[in-house]
Computed example of a mutant assay.
Amino acid sequence: MSGPLTHIDLDTVHQFSAGIGTYASARLVTLSDGRERGVRVIEMRSGGGVEIDVAVDRSGDIGRFSFNGQTLSWHPSTGLTAPGLMDQEGDNGQGFLRGFGGFLNTCGLDHIRQPDSDKGVTSNQGQIDQVHYPLHGKGTFQPGVIRGYGLVDDVDVPYVFCEVEFCQGMSFVSALRLRRRIEMPVGAQHFTIRDTVRNIGSTPATHMLLYHFNLGFPLISPGTEIDLGGDPCIWRSHEHAPTAPFLSPDPRAINAISVFDHGSDKGRVTVTNRLDGMALQLEYPSAQLPYCQVLRMTAPGIYGLGIEPCTTAARSRQEARDRQEMIILHPNEQRHYCLRVALTENET
């Protein structure tokens, strides 16, 4: 694939237009209706057909992701629910599902997967000796702080960027900060997410992270294929074929979850729709995210695919400890994560 600006230099652009910002940009807007009211969004356009909406007030996650005007992300009926309307602890700890959706939901920063309880690592408040964690943790759907955004056109490879951060903390217990920078080169069909999670508190804190990427119709439709490069499946929620081509929506379908163990230096997941003429590839260092969870949703109206790189394959906090996969961040200690999302040509 090559975008309209890929092979055009800046001097040429200025000959025909007011500048490259006409085609590639980052713009801050605020949603103002329904459950989305008040959510700030940075609209990023590469000029090569890729557009993403970075929801500042949903942990810097990505709402709509489209290519040439065609939406590729999976969305629920509720839209980008504002953080003030979220109650992660509600619905027996399943409150995450009332805001889940869009291209990316960041899960953590200290817990992922099903609700759980655990003894705190340390605390200087004696009454807090047991912590309850909702589905995918308490760091989801957090209001953010904007550190910067815009078009950088005075470099050899111009790019559009945004940088946001949020803090998940509780006095006397822990404080974790995620700082996120998203960059997309002008004219490109790819973008990169770079995250740093730092313990900004005064006590050690547990750390888990899962990136919940959600793809929907028409990219996900009958015949869509999933390829994890031969990495082995090490867990299934029930007996099913995790990488089988998608079939038509089935009213009897239940969500199917599987976990894969990356055996090479890179985690690489490719989702291909040959009829649509499009493939999406997600890449990241397996040293940072050694596992990938796959969620297949195939019921009518709830039809899509979740690709979920994560720090642990454990189904509970105790199992994570047993597997030596529970990360402990000490004060001022940090972890880095880098993920690349690209649209590629289908193989013939």
Rank of each mutant, 00 (worst) to 15 (best):
T22F: 12
G90V: 05
Y291S: 01
R64H: 13
A241I: 00
L5N: 11
A188I: 07
V155W: 06
G120Q: 12
H14G: 04
P245K: 06
N68Q: 14
C310Y: 03
G101V: 08
D9K: 09
P218L: 07
G120D: 10
L104C: 04
D276E: 13
R64G: 06
G126W: 11
G267V: 13
W235D: 05
Q70R: 14
F96G: 00
M44R: 03
A244R: 04
T196H: 09
P185E: 12
C233L: 01
S258E: 02
L209P: 03
T71V: 15
R181P: 03
P242K: 12
S66K: 09
N124D: 15
I307T: 08
N332P: 00
G63W: 14
G187C: 13
L280V: 14
M86T: 15
T81A: 07
D118E: 11
D110A: 05
T122A: 15
L295M: 08
V50Y: 04
L97N: 04
L219A: 07
Q130W: 10
I42K: 00
G277R: 14
R58A: 02
N124P: 04
L275E: 15
S248G: 07
Y133H: 15
G187L: 10
T71L: 13
Y211R: 07
E51V: 14
V29H: 02
N92D: 14
G3K: 09
S73Y: 03
D91H: 14
I193K: 00
Q324W: 02
G144V: 09
C233T: 02
A279W: 02
C107I: 09
F260M: 03
G102A: 06
Q15W: 01
A279M: 07
R45Y: 11
C233V: 12
G95L: 08
Y284K: 09
G48A: 06
T311V: 13
G139C: 02
M326G: 05
I42G: 03
I52D: 01
F260W: 12
N105S: 13
N332S: 15
L104K: 02
L305R: 11
A82D: 07
E183G: 01
G230P: 01
G21L: 06
D227W: 07
C338F: 00
L339M: 14
E163K: 10
L219I: 08
F161R: 03
V145Q: 09
S237V: 09
S237L: 08
H330V: 01
G263Y: 04
Q288C: 11
G216P: 01
I327W: 05
P242Q: 08
D231E: 13
L109K: 00
L343V: 14
V294N: 07
P185F: 05
C162N: 15
R181F: 08
T272D: 06
M44I: 14
E347G: 15
M278G: 01
Y149W: 15
M208E: 12
A253V: 06
R194H: 10
L343W: 08
A299V: 10
G126T: 14
T71K: 10
S2C: 03
V164N: 08
G120C: 05
P251Y: 04
G148I: 06
R181S: 09
A18C: 09
R98S: 14
D154T: 13
F172K: 00
E51L: 14
V56M: 05
L104Y: 02
R113V: 01
Y291R: 07
G49D: 08
E36Y: 06
Y23N: 04
